[in-house]
Amino acid sequence: MRTLVRSAGVAALAAALFAAALPASPAEDTAPLKTPQWSFTGVMGGFDTAALQRGFQVFDNVCAACHSLSFVAYRNLVDIGLPEAKAKEVAAAKMVTDGPNDQGEMFQRPAILADRFVPPFANENAARYAMNGAYPPDLSLIVKAREGGPDYVYSLLTGFADAPHDVTLAAGMNYNPYFPGHQIAMPPPLAEGVLDYADGTKATVDQMAKDVTQFLEWAAEPKLGERKRMGLGVMLFLLVLTGMFYAVKRAVWRDVH
């Protein structure tokens, strides 16, 4: 048994050495991501409600002009601490098509809490037409859909720079070393002075990028806090249970050894 475990260790080590000796994937030529401290990573991590609300303000003022958030509903804003009245107000600012009414007509009405975030464009074609051929992706899952998650989104938002001399940008493109291919259709979305935070926090580009990234992490994984809280209880329970199982095993086998 002990030799078996030792051999397994040697095998694992050999494989790890092999993996380390191999070249990294050549496909990715993007810059190494910035890694800010996030409140929601780690075993005990959770969302910072104030940051989420600031992040929503950034999303609502900046991102929402081009990007949809189609898996999030206005009622979900209550979960980040917005008062219900405020969430209703946010919803009512958008119009949605409903119907048919009792005369068979479709009609426009203000959005309500039960509606999902109203997209800025009717469909992909309308978006591409307005955006010079580019399609701003839906942001509901963007953090989970990108390698590097929140670090990637933050790095991208803060990573715009002037193109190096040896790079020729295509028309309408912007240089960003974190984006695959380094050329992105999105212009730098965040700039000092685009908004004033309701809670008085200074709206620097770095602060806005952090806040909106946290908001998008929440949009992608709204049950993160609940998951980690439940996880702690489950892990403690399982550790005690497994300890008891071990004691039972020892007791049962005592007369055999």
Partner: peptide, 29 residues
């Protein structure tokens, strides 16, 4: 008894995946 102890270890690893790194084994895309 021996299988139950093994099950406990199994469930601890399983729960660690599910509650803390649920997307670590799948592709973001």
């Amino acid at each position: 008894a021996k299988d139950l102890f093994g099950l406990g270890i199994y469930l601890i690893i399983f729960a660690a995946l599910v509650f803390y790194v649920p997307n670590s084994l799948s592709e973001p895309v």
